[in-house]
């Protein structure tokens, strides 16, 4: 039998080490299906091959001229 919203919320709050009042917990339990619906709605087939929008830039914190070999074009200078 899969866990109920109440068991799920209890477990997640415990994992997050959050101590909440009873009525706050009751609100979480009531809202939980709606909160999950938002997340589950994002697993769309259209997104199957997409990269995330946030990307990693290895150049950060290195002064662009730190090394002779490469005059790395700063990724900051996006033309308008």
């Amino acid at each position: 039998m899969s866990p109920s919203s109440e068991e799920i919320v209890t477990s997640l709050l415990s994992m997050a080490r959050l101590t909440v009042s009873d009525d706050e917990k009751a609100t979480f339990v009531r809202d939980f299906p709606l909160i999950r619906e938002g997340a589950d709605g994002l697993y769309l087939p259209d997104v199957e091959f997409d990269e995330p929008a946030v990307k990693f830039n290895p150049l950060d914190y290195y002064p662009a001229t730190a090394w002779p070999a490469v005059q790395a074009q700063s990724t900051r200078s996006e033309e308008v």
Binding site: A39, L42, Y43, L44, D46, V47, D50, E51, P52, A53, V54
Partner: peptide, 9 residues
């Protein structure tokens, strides 16, 4: 991670 992929799409 999925929200960020949705964001790109």
């Amino acid at each position: 991670a999925q929200a960020q992929r949705f964001r790109m799409m």
